[in-house]
Design a protein around this nucleic acid. Sequence first.
DNA 1: ATTCCTGCAAACCTTTTGCAGAGGT
DNA 2: ACCTCTGCAAAAGGTTTGCAGGAAT
Lengths: 153, 153
Amino acid sequence: MHPAPLVEAARQKLQAFIRAEGLKQTRQRDEILDAFFAAGGHVSVDELLRDVLLRSPGVGHATIYRTMRLFVDAGIAHERNFGDGQTRYEPMVPDEHHDHLICLDCNKIFEFEDPIIEERQAQVCIRWGLTPQHHRHEIYGRCQKGAACPNRA
Amino acid sequence: MHPAPLVEAARQKLQAFIRAEGLKQTRQRDEILDAFFAAGGHVSVDELLRDVLLRSPGVGHATIYRTMRLFVDAGIAHERNFGDGQTRYEPMVPDEHHDHLICLDCNKIFEFEDPIIEERQAQVCIRWGLTPQHHRHEIYGRCQKGAACPNRA
DNA sequence: ATTCCTGCAAACCTTTTGCAGAGGT
DNA sequence: ACCTCTGCAAAAGGTTTGCAGGAAT
């Protein structure tokens, strides 16, 4: 899903952040990082915990929550929220941005990117005098022909 | 915030829905409807409950939750979610659509509408073979010059 | 040695649900 | 009469926090 260099770049960025903040590098953080990037994107804490437990039993969910916040603070993860009541995370790719299409039948998540939409957004911000920080743009619908949907929720 | 006819249209739509579904019209539902439209938009359950309690003490929060779901089902309210951990509701205006700008300093919510963005969205859906149901488009940022912000959270 | 981290359990918050009685049709 | 609604309290589901022991620096 993501090229190998991505994990390495993230690992370095995380290490830099950890040093800069006087934090510590731990076995758990390393393993959560690997599991997170292996998952490829849009993982929930629950899913991530399951993955991590396969390799290192005993890790508590609190650690996943705390670590994901660390990853967000370190700038290597994005927090997402698709209305299913769970916070999801995806690896942050430098200089890359995309929004999402979510299938209501199968919960599959597609990614899209549209320069024209981005530009219009900037215009809207100017018109309202708002300095944009980030945005969230999600389109919900049904992929394919309903029944032909890969799988359903 | 909203012209008077809007409440009346909603009241009628709700009554029609209630009759059609064999439900019942109650004092609480009437009062929640009034409070909801008086609030003007983007209300949380908590805020709404506070308003309702002023006129009719004793109403429980469960009733607000149940009633707001009814309003959504009846097509007179929209459910929104701006990441502050509370579900918010706004009156649904027939044939009207808008998205939101949210100030991170004062939590003020602005509304915008951009036909070009809407059209590009449709294109994106076509490209991915997704039949759109609804979407969510929110831009987060800082309004004015920070300190000049009308009020802060 | 010091300071941060972890795992556990309990706390928290918003939302949902079960139930008995009140209220609408 | 029947069946829906309400209010209360309890439950549920996801996330956060306090704490004592363990690990990293």
